[in-house]
Simulated scan of single mutants.
Amino acid sequence: MAQEHRKLLIIGSGPAGYTAAVYAARAMVEPLLIQGMQPGGQLTITTEVENWPGLVEVQGPDLMVKMEEHARAMGADIKFDTVSKLDLSVRPFRAECDSGDVVTADAVVLATGAQAKWLGLPSEEKFQGFGVSACATCDGFFYRGKEVVVIGGGNTAVEEALFLTNFASKVTLIHRRDELRAEKILQRRLLKNPKIEPLWDHEVVEVLGEQDPLGVTGVKIRNVKTGAESTLDTSGVFVAIGHSPASELVNDQLELLEGGYVKVEPGTTRTSIPGVFAAGDLTDHVYRQAVTSAGMGCMAALDAERFLAEHDEAGEPAPDAAQIEEVPA
């Protein structure tokens, strides 16, 4: 077991984490980034990315490899490990890793991201990135003139379905119930859209597709009231049953928003504990894009660098837990 101290610890290795590492390293803060169980985050299970500025098309895993290489080139230390416990009640902050190593830090950037909730079907996992998606904004462009299905009944599902009508020839919304849980105004927009057809009281039990090339051709659906099964032809399946922010490390230490997202002071990445900053999907339940996550990673690094500089110039240690201020609403 090893123990080390850093001025800045970055937890998470998606676009937010790697961008924070680039900016912090360039500011000579000498950050340590701990990658977590899925280095690169959600983009590692994405195929074509066509909305990253400057690159007409890039594979998701390739983009994350380039971001990691960039952070290393700037001087950031990157470690493949997982933080299993984070104590924000002590100064310096203390992180314990699965490897047994312990890292203390004067400031922390949380960039642990969020994961889409999936149905849990083996066939769904098989076709992820090849016709099964959890992000219409990311992948809707690939379904121009094609028929797609959206699974869910809340705000996310309705918003995804409405967005997909910009590309798809038809959108079938599959919902287990006979009414939507989404806001009324969204329901009205969906129900009057001629491209959207709701399929009530049904659930998807299997994603159907071809092997060579790998791709979705349909779904097997079941009526939850009668048990009758049938198939529905489709080129794309969008699962929209919500996201789970990876806030387990701090859910009893930081102020959170509904759904478990970390709350930050508007216009900043500052959390309810001075010296702790949050960026990316961990705090963003609205946009959830790689480019916005990267932007917040930049903000977090700059916020952290200023925090550290202020306390260094004052010749005083970082404030302890007794000085925690509540984040403004």
Rank of each mutant, 00 (worst) to 15 (best):
M1L: 14
A2T: 15
A2Q: 15
Q3T: 15
H5W: 13
H5A: 12
L8Q: 00
I10H: 04
S13I: 12
G17C: 07
T19K: 02
T19I: 01
T19M: 07
V22N: 00
Y23W: 12
A25K: 06
A25G: 13
A25P: 01
M28Y: 14
P31V: 07
I34G: 01
G36E: 08
T46H: 06
E48G: 02
E50C: 09
E50D: 12
N51Y: 08
W52V: 06
P53Y: 09
G54H: 10
V56S: 14
P61S: 04
P61L: 11
P61E: 11
L63Q: 00
L63F: 01
M64W: 03
E68R: 15
H70I: 11
H70E: 14
A71I: 03
A71C: 11
A73K: 15
M74T: 14
M74Y: 13
V83C: 10
K85M: 13
L86P: 03
L86W: 00
D87V: 02
L88G: 04
V90D: 01
P92L: 12
C97Y: 07
C97K: 10
S99P: 10
D106A: 11
A107I: 09
A107T: 08
V108N: 03
V108E: 09
L110H: 09
L110W: 08
G113H: 09
S123M: 09
F130V: 05
S133C: 06
A134S: 15
A134I: 02
C135W: 04
C135G: 06
C135P: 00
D139T: 07
Y143E: 05
Y143V: 05
R144H: 13
E147G: 06
V150W: 03
G152Y: 11
G153K: 03
F163H: 12
L164N: 00
T165N: 08
F167S: 03
V171S: 02
V171E: 04
V171H: 05
I174R: 00
I174C: 02
H175Q: 13
R177L: 14
A182D: 02
I185A: 00
Q187T: 13
Q187W: 09
L190W: 08
L191K: 07
I196M: 04
P198F: 05
V204E: 03
V205K: 01
V207K: 01
D212A: 14
G215Y: 02
V216N: 02
V216R: 04
K220L: 03
R222D: 03
G227A: 10
G227Q: 06
E229W: 05
E229N: 09
L232G: 10
G236C: 04
F238Y: 00
A240I: 00
I241E: 06
S247D: 01
S247G: 07
E248A: 15
L249P: 06
Q253F: 10
L254Y: 02
E255R: 07
L256D: 07
L256C: 02
G260W: 05
V262L: 06
P266I: 08
T268N: 01
T268L: 07
S272T: 10
S272E: 00
S272H: 05
V276A: 04
L282I: 14
D284M: 03
D284G: 08
H285Y: 12
H285P: 11
S293Y: 08
M299G: 05
A300E: 04
L302S: 09
F307L: 03
E310I: 11
E310V: 13
D312L: 09
D312T: 12
A314T: 02
G315I: 10
E316K: 14
A318W: 06
E326I: 13
P328L: 12
P328V: 12
